[in-house]
Design a binder for these strands. Structure first.
Lengths: 167, 167
DNA sequence: CAGAGTATTTACAGATCTCTGAAAGTTCTG
DNA sequence: CAGAACTTTCAGAGATCTGTAAATACTCTG
């Protein structure tokens, strides 16, 4: 099995995992193709061929991924085709997006608390815990992600040459 | 609109949000019913009536939620029916479970790196970033959740002196 | 241990989703 | 500005999922 085939195999495996986690199958396949591709960017035609899917399917997946920040269009001088790639820092941005979800969960918990009236009721206690938890995460997660960004950037600088990083 | 109806409305709204985020609709509705219920626990029959769904559907949802730690059976002396409730500390546990996903993502990234061979290739760089990010999160998130647990427990002590009422 | 009261599983029906193929829309080039 | 090269949209076919109803399996009580 060539290295390339191995990469594709791992890509498909990850796509499957993501699909089980709720992501659309085709969308996941497009994303992992981009993520594991040895090329810097891929065109819609490339994806059609590699994944054996129609251009319509690719278009749909691209739309979704773009909305989530997991895919970006790259200006491709000399080619009419759109070129896509998996963006740098996408993972961190993804985590940041989840902050939206954390905020929403916190809000809903708050609304529930209001409706419950008394925080001492069963619902009140459950919702208090929920509100507290999500408020905490909303407060603590962004700085954590920022710290990673800083760490990683620092590592990258040092690494260019004598990268002592590693494990 | 009574308080109870308001609670149910918020519950259904959250269920809808969760469903859009990939969770099964019925499963989400069962979970939020339990979460927002003024009762301490609910039986399958209660859920059937409140949500207007069949007992089979409840059974399925219970199975899924139990597996995710978002629902637990409560010993119900005097009643033959199973009583269910939303467990204390479920949110924290849920976040901890996501660690499993973080670990998996890290592993897959590592496998990709091996298959890519050279970390300097496009795939190599993308996967290096991915592996680093997930390793970082896997390292930092559990302590964060522990800190919340400690904080929240401390808050609770200070506040509800005689709260023996617990469950 | 028989039997009632519950929970779970199963087959099937209905609904939903998703892909394909083709038409329509866009955007460059010559 | 006409035409080519792509991408996006759309209607319909096919696959997938999910809930119901009924049968089956548990689990207490008497």
């Amino acid at each position: 099995m060539s290295d390339d085939e191995q990469l594709r195999a791992v890509a498909e495996r990850l796509a499957l995992i993501l699909a089980q986690g709720g992501m659309q199958k085709t969308t996941a396949r497009v994303m992992t193709s981009l993520l594991f591709s040895q090329r810097g960017t891929m065109t819609a035609a490339d994806l059609c061929e590699e994944l054996q899917i129609s251009s319509g399917a690719v278009s749909g997946a691209v739309k979704q991924l773009t909305a989530s920040g997991l895919l970006e269009r790259v200006p491709a001088p000399g080619s009419r085709r759109d070129h896509y790639r998996f963006p740098d820092g996408a993972w961190a941005r993804l985590m940041t997006q989840q902050n939206q979800m954390l905020a929403t969960m916190g809000e809903v918990a708050g609304q529930g608390l209001v409706a419950a009236g008394d925080p001492a009721t069963p619902a009140g206690q459950r919702l208090t815990e929920m509100a507290d938890f999500y408020a905490f995460m909303l407060r603590e997660l962004p700085p954590l992600v920022d710290r990673w960004r800083a760490d990683f950037a620092a590592k990258g600088e040092g690494a260019g040459e004598g990268e002592g990083a590693g494990r």
